[in-house]
Each structure stands twice: as C-alpha cells, then as structure tokens.
Amino acid sequence: MPLPTVIMPGYLEGARAYRPMEQLLQKLGFPTVTVPLRKRDWLPTVGGRSMVPILRQLDRTVKQTLQQYNVSQINLIGHSAGGWIARIYLGEKPYTIHGDVRSTAGLWHAHPYIATLVTLGTPHVSQERWTKRNLDFVKINYPGAFHPQVRYICVAGKAIYGARRPGSWLAYSSYQLTCGRGDSWGDGITPIEAAHLEGAENLVIEAVLHSPRSRGIWYGSPTVVQSWVSYLA
C-alpha cells in the first residue's frame, strides 16, 4: 500500500478548501488527511510572526497519521506557504527566532518521518518584509533540497505573465514582491523561479492557477494531480 499522505494548507486557508484534493488522492489509492486548520488559526501568525501555532497542528497530524497507519514514514504535500512551513518542520535547527518557544519543543527535526515532500506553488524565497524573516530562516539553514534522504518535488504553475496592465497587475506585484521581478511567468501569485529548489525534481505545469478557490484549474484539480501524483508512489 502507498504511504499515507498529509496535506499542509496554504497561508490563511482552512482544511475545507483541500477536501476535494484529499478525496481525489484517496480514490487514487493514497490514504490522505489534511492538517485540520481553520482560517482563524492563522491569525496569530499575521505580520510575519511565528509559525509555531501552525507547526503544532502539523506535528500533531503527522504523528497521528504515523500511529494510525503503523508506518515509519509519510508523504507530505505543502501548498503555497505550507511548503516552506513544511521545510521548517523537516529541519534540525530549533525554530526559535521569534522567542516564543524553547529549543526542546520538538516541533521540527521531522525529516526521518518524511519520504517525499511535494510543494505546490510554494514561494521558497521572498523579498516581502512580513515573510522575509521566516523564509530567510529556511533559505539560510536548509538551502535547496537539503535533506538527501527526502525526495523533493516542487511544482510550479505557468498561467499568468506578470505585466503592468489590467488583468496582470496582481500577478506582477506578487511576483515582484517574491523574486524582485514582476515580468515573469507564474501561477498568478508565485513566480516559477521562486517555486523551484536547487536539487529538487522541479515541474512546470501549464495553465495552473495558485489558489484552490481559483475559477480555473489549480494544483489540486484532477487533471493537474495526475501530473505529480506518481511521485507519491
């Protein structure tokens, strides 16, 4: 049987938005659970504050899944910010940069439990003032596909080219805040170059939008899941 899979939602998003993807993965034979976040669970993290409240829920879900299925490893899918939060969780260095948790909290050093990490539209870098501190912690301590025993799959969408014109302003602004260049391709929020990691299996999928609430297809749409689900096997 394939390893169980845990889905880590993106920033300010609740688990409900990921139910269709969760159910699709289950139908494809992958036991799947989503970290049971609600939108309000993110409020303590707003403004670049600590992700410890989210790490607690991620850790609880992973350990419950390991116990439920009596396995030593799982697959982890992180959408958007969920991808770089997952990289904090995998890492060995105590995430104490905000002074709100002790180094013995045990909310990291999880890489032995993770067989494959799939990131979907994750901005692995940022120049935005509120997220830079957290992302710099990840980038400096765990550059690229850092843990050799973990398989990293980084999926980027190519749907919108950022430009200073109606219909592309949001993409342009978001790409510029992320990688310093607005005139790039991406999923409307995350530019392709920011969604990939050196040493990872880096994928680009055409016409894929960022959010599970997008009007078009997104990373969890059935046709798109088929492009990356084989890496969970």
Rank of each mutant, 00 (worst) to 15 (best):
G99H: 10
V62F: 01
R129E: 14
A163M: 09
D183P: 00
R87C: 05
L90G: 02
W228R: 07
T131S: 15
T223C: 04
L58N: 04
N134Y: 01
A110T: 07
L209A: 03
G83F: 04
G199Y: 02
R151W: 01
I88Q: 02
L170S: 11
Y95M: 11
P112N: 07
I97L: 15
K39G: 09
V46K: 08
Q67H: 09
M8V: 10
H124T: 07
L76T: 09
L209C: 03
E206V: 10
G10Y: 00
D136F: 04
A207W: 01
G199M: 06
L28Q: 12
H109V: 04
Y231R: 11
P53T: 14
R213A: 13
G186Y: 06
R181S: 14
S173N: 12
R56D: 03
Y18D: 01
R60C: 05
T45I: 13
L197M: 13
R56A: 06
H79M: 09
L135I: 15
G162F: 07
R40A: 10
W185H: 05
P4V: 14
Q64V: 01
R19A: 06
Q57H: 03
D187H: 05
G48M: 08
L24C: 01
D136I: 04
W42C: 12
R165N: 06
N134E: 09
F146I: 06
D187C: 06
A194C: 05
I217S: 06
L37T: 00
P143N: 07
T32N: 01
G220H: 03
R181D: 15
K132R: 14
S174P: 00
C154M: 03
A171W: 04
R60F: 06
S103K: 14
Y219K: 08
H124A: 04
A163Q: 15
Y89M: 09
N75S: 07
Y95V: 09
T32A: 05
G47F: 12
E128W: 11
Q176D: 11
T32W: 05
L55H: 08
A195Y: 04
P44G: 12
K139R: 15
S214I: 12
P123C: 13
Y172E: 12
G157H: 02
G48S: 08
G216S: 11
